[in-house]
Design a protein around this nucleic acid. Structure first.
Lengths: 208, 208
DNA sequence: GCGAAAACTGTACCTTCAGTCCAGTAAATC
DNA sequence: GATTTACTGGACTGAAGGTACAGTTTTCGC
C-alpha cells in the first residue's frame, strides 16, 4: 500500500462525510438522521458506528473537513492576491474583491457556514468542537492580521483602530453575512457585506 | 375582565415561553425537550399541546417574542439617542455606543441570538418562520436607514456607499459578532465589533 | 348560581432516532 | 494462511415528538 492511496475504510469514511455534508448544509445537523445517511451510503448502522463513535464525532469530522476546505479557499485567494501586488494594502483589497466574488457565486457551502451551524447547535457539543472552532477563527485572524500588520507599517490609519478587532471584523462579516444571506435567500447580500468591509479598509488606510 | 389583564391560558402560555426561552438560549432548540419544559412549568403534555400545535409553533412564538423584545431594546436605545442630539450623525454614533455597551453587558439573551439560532436550525422550518425573520431584519434595516438617510443629507460620505448595505451591515455585525462571542466565549467581542462599525460610520461621514 | 366555553388532566399508544451489544463474515494485508 | 480491517445482521433500549380522545376542573358571561 503506497502512502498516497486510500484504504477501503478511508474511502467509506469520506463517502459518509460527503453525503452528510450536503445533507447538513441543506437541512441542518439535527434534521439529518444517521438512517438517512447510511441509506444513501449503502451501508449498515453497524458500519456507520464502526467509523464514528457517535453523531457528535460526525459533527467534529465535518467541521474539521470544512475548516480544511475553507483554509484552502481563503489561503488560495489571498496568496494569489499577494502575487498580484507587492503593496500589502492593494494586495489585501484585491484579495477582498476576489473573496466577495467567490462568496457571491456560492449558495450553500460558504466558508464559515459549517462553523455557524455547529456553533448554534452546540452547548452540549463537546470541548473538542469548541476548541476546533476557536483554533479555526484564530487561524483566519492570523491570516488577515498578516496583511494588516504590513499595511499599518506604510499606511497610517485615518483614525485609531485595534487591528486585532479589524481582523476579526472580516470573520464576523462573513458569519453575519451568511445569516443575512440565508434570511433573504440571496448570496449577493454576503458579497455586498464583504465589499462594504473592503470599503472600510480602503477608507481607513487610503482615505477614499 | 379588563382589557389589560391576562386570561389563565395566556398566563400559562407565557410561562411556557419564559421557560422555553432560557432553555433554548442555554442549550439550543433541538436540545430542549418538551418533557423538560412541561416538568418545569408543572403541566401535562396535553396541556402543552393545547397551547402549541407542535414544537415548530413553539419556535415561532419564541422568535416572535424575541423580535418584540429586540425591537423594544433597539427602539429604546436609538430613541434616547435622538433625544440626546439633534444632529443625526451624532445621534447615531451615541446610539451605537449605547448599543455596544448594552450588548457587552449581556451574555446570553443578545438581540438577534434567537434569530440566528432559528435561522441555523431551520430549512425544514416553515415559511412563517422565514417570513418573520425577513420582516424583523427589514424592520431593523428601516430603523438604521432612518438615521443614515438623515445623515447623508448633511454629511457627504468620504467615499461612495450604498446606505442600504450600510444599514444591513449593522444587523450583520450583530449576528456575526454573536457567533464570534460564542466561539471565544466573550461578550466583549460583540461589543468591539459594534464599536468598529461605529468607527467606520464616523470615518465615512466625519473623516476621522 | 348556572351553563357554556376555556383550560386543562390522564392514559394509552405510535414512530423516529440515537445508540448498544454482540456474533459472524468478507476482504485486504502481512 | 493467519491476522487485522471493515464491515453485516439482528435484536434491543430509551428518549423524544407526537396523536387520540374521553373526562375533569376552572373561569366567564349572563
Amino acid at each position: 500500500m503506497s502512502a498516497t492511496s486510500k484504504t477501503k475504510g478511508e474511502t467509506t469514511r469520506e463517502r459518509i462525510l460527503e453525503i452528510a455534508e450536503s445533507a447538513v448544509l441543506a437541512k441542518g445537523f439535527s434534521n439529518t438522521s444517521i438512517d438517512e445517511i447510511i441509506a444513501e451510503a449503502e451501508l449498515t448502522k453497524s458500519g456507520f458506528f464502526y467509523h464514528f463513535r457517535d453523531k457528535t464525532a460526525l459533527a467534529q469530522a465535518l467541521l474539521s473537513r470544512s475548516f480544511e476546505q475553507d483554509d484552502q479557499i481563503l489561503g488560495g485567494i489571498f496568496e494569489r492576491a499577494r502575487e498580484l501586488s507587492d503593496d500589502p494594502l492593494h494586495a489585501f483589497l484585491i484579495g477582498l474583491k476576489m473573496f466577495a466574488e467567490t462568496m457571491g457565486d456560492m449558495d450553500e457551502a460558504h466558508p464559515g457556514c459549517m462553523v455557524a451551524t455547529v456553533t448554534y447547535h452546540d452547548k452540549q457539543f463537546n470541548n473538542e468542537i469548541r476548541a476546533m472552532n476557536r483554533a479555526g477563527m484564530i487561524r483566519w485572524r492570523s491570516l488577515f492580521l498578516s496583511f494588516l500588520e504590513d499595511i499599518v507599517r506604510t499606511y497610517p490609519p485615518r483614525t485609531e483602530v485595534d487591528i486585532d478587532v479589524l481582523a476579526d471584523m472580516l470573520s464576523s462579516t462573513v458569519e453575519g453575512g451568511i445569516v443575512l444571506s440565508k434570511v433573504f435567500n440571496d448570496p449577493k447580500v454576503l458579497a455586498d457585506q464583504i465589499l462594504q468591509y473592503r470599503t472600510y479598509v480602503r477608507l481607513l488606510f487610503l482615505g477614499n
